[in-house]
Design a protein around this nucleic acid. Structure first.
Lengths: 84, 84
DNA sequence: ATAATATTTAGATATTTGTCTAAATATATA
DNA sequence: TATATATTTAGACAAATATCTAAATATTAT
């Protein structure tokens, strides 16, 4: 749970997740949505990946990122325990 | 959402929430559950309070903390948007 | 009033984090 | 093969954070 909450504790990373909710995107296309350098976005993507919140697949010279909804379920479960 | 995720990004604070899920507790009783100084726990409680995840009420010389389930719902909503 | 108990505030410090630029790596194209 | 494009890695740095001890504040009890 630690890596997940660490990953969620940043507005840029949460925004990336919301982008990926709609469709998978390349690292570059993701970076273009923010006023932050590409290396910084790459670093954010790495943190999301380590938390298993996104997956990545190399397609030619691009790297395509997708949301991993399985882990989203894990967060839901944790939150829901607070209500029981 | 920022303050909430910031508050959740710490194992001690998440553990405090799980404790309060079962019953309300005084600051001292909460502190006794951790191997961390009372001032540090007080600081964690302050962060949880600013995020509105807990409420506090002074009862005599004690301060009783409770979980605020309303805000827990807000987190749920945000997580669920990721799945739609 | 004084002492004891409960909690918070203040100030210090080491660690973590988000950001940047420059350089490295990998792939595609001319 | 040389060049352009896409992405990541490396290293540096300022800001944020979790922790501590000491002191302050508030309440209760003697």
């Amino acid at each position: 749970m630690n890596a997940i909450f660490k990953a969620l504790n940043d507005e840029t990373r949460r925004d990336i997740l919301e982008l990926l909710r709609k469709q998978e995107m390349t690292a570059g296309d993701i970076a273009d949505q923010f006023h932050i350098s590409k290396p910084s976005i790459s670093h954010h993507l790495d943190i999301l990946k380590r938390a298993d919140l996104v997956t990545s697949e190399k397609k030619g010279q691009f790297v395509v990122y997708s949301l991993n909804t399985t882990i989203v379920d894990d967060i839901l479960k944790w939150i829901i325990t607070l209500k029981k």
